[in-house]
C-alpha cells in the first residue's frame, strides 16, 4: 500500500504559489482579451457586409475546429517563422488562448444578441433611435444578462486550458508542479494537490454560475 505523505509538499509552497499566481494572472489576461476578441467577432458575424461576416466566420471556425494544444505549439514554433517575429512562450500562448477563447465567446455573444426579440429593436427604431443607440441602450443590456452564465462557463474552461501552456515552459501551476514532482520523487502527492487546487478554485465558481442560471430561469 502506498504511503501518502503530503507533508513534503510544504517545502515547495512558494513554488506552488508562484505557479498558481501565474495561472490566475494568465487566466485574467486571456479572459479579458478573449472577450474583446469575441465581441469583435460577434459583431463581425452580425455585420451587414458579407465580406465582414466571411472573415469573422473563418476566424471562428479556424479556432473552434482545431485543438488548443496544436494551436499553442503552432503559435510558438510556426508563426514566428511565417511572420518573422520572435515571441516569448508567454506571448505566444496568451495570443493562442485569447483567440481560441474568443472564437467560443463570439458565438455566445452573437447568440445572446439574436435571442432578443426583434420587437425590441423595432420599438427602439420607432422611437427614433439609431441602430447603434438601439444596440447599446435596448438590446445589449438585455442580451448580456442572458449571456453571463455561458460566458462564465467558457471562462472556467479557459482557466483549465491554461494548464496546457506548461508545454511551452510557461511557469504556471502545472509546470511548477512538474518541477516539484521531479525534485521530490513524489508525483502522486504533487499532482493530487494540483488537481485539488484547480477544483478548490473552480467549484465555488460553478456554484455561482448555477445560481445565476437559476435566477435567470425565474426572471424569464
Amino acid at each position: 500500500m502506498y504511503h501518502w505523505d503530503f507533508g513534503i509538499l510544504w517545502g515547495y509552497r512558494w513554488l506552488f504559489l508562484n505557479g498558481l499566481g501565474v495561472t490566475v494572472g494568465f487566466t485574467v489576461v486571456i479572459v479579458v482579451c478573449g472577450l474583446l476578441c469575441g465581441l469583435i467577432a460577434a459583431f463581425g458575424m452580425l455585420s451587414r457586409f458579407a465580406w465582414v461576416r466571411a472573415v469573422a466566420l473563418v476566424f471562428i471556425e479556424a479556432f473552434r475546429c482545431t485543438p488548443i494544444l496544436v494551436q499553442l505549439i503552432w503559435f510558438y514554433y510556426a508563426l514566428p517563422i511565417l511572420a518573422g517575429v520572435e515571441m516569448t512562450p508567454i506571448t505566444a500562448s496568451a495570443l493562442a488562448l485569447s483567440l481560441y477563447g474568443g472564437s467560443f465567446y463570439s458565438e455566445i455573444i452573437r447568440g445572446g444578441i439574436v435571442s432578443i426579440d426583434r420587437g425590441q429593436s423595432e420599438a427602439g427604431a420607432a422611437l427614433g433611435m439609431t441602430p447603434r443607440q438601439t444596440m447599446t441602450r435596448i438590446v445589449l443590456p438585455q442580451a448580456i444578462k442572458r449571456m453571463i452564465p455561458a460566458l462564465m462557463n467558457q471562462s472556467i474552461i479557459q482557466f483549465k486550458n491554461t494548464s496546457l501552456v506548461s508545454v511551452l515552459a510557461v511557469p504556471d501551476l502545472v509546470y511548477q508542479s512538474q518541477v516539484a514532482a521531479h525534485d521530490s520523487y513524489r508525483p502522486l502527492e504533487t499532482y493530487t494537490a494540483v488537481a485539488l487546487a484547480y477544483a478548490a478554485i473552480l467549484i465555488p465558481l460553478t456554484i455561482l454560475v448555477r445560481r445565476g442560471e437559476k435566477r435567470m430561469a425565474v426572471s424569464e
Binding site: 426579440d117 420599438a123 420607432a126 427614433g128 433611435m129 439609431t130 435596448i138 438585455q142
Partner: peptide, 24 residues
C-alpha cells in the same frame, strides 16, 4: 441613411400589437 431615418421616425409614434416595452 440611418440618421435621416431616425430623425423621421422620432416624429411618428408607433404602438405595437405585442407592446414591445423594454423589460429591463
Amino acid at each position: 441613411d440611418v440618421k435621416t431615418l431616425a430623425r423621421f421616425r422620432a416624429t411618428t409614434g408607433m404602438v405595437f400589437q405585442h407592446f414591445n416595452l423594454f423589460p429591463h
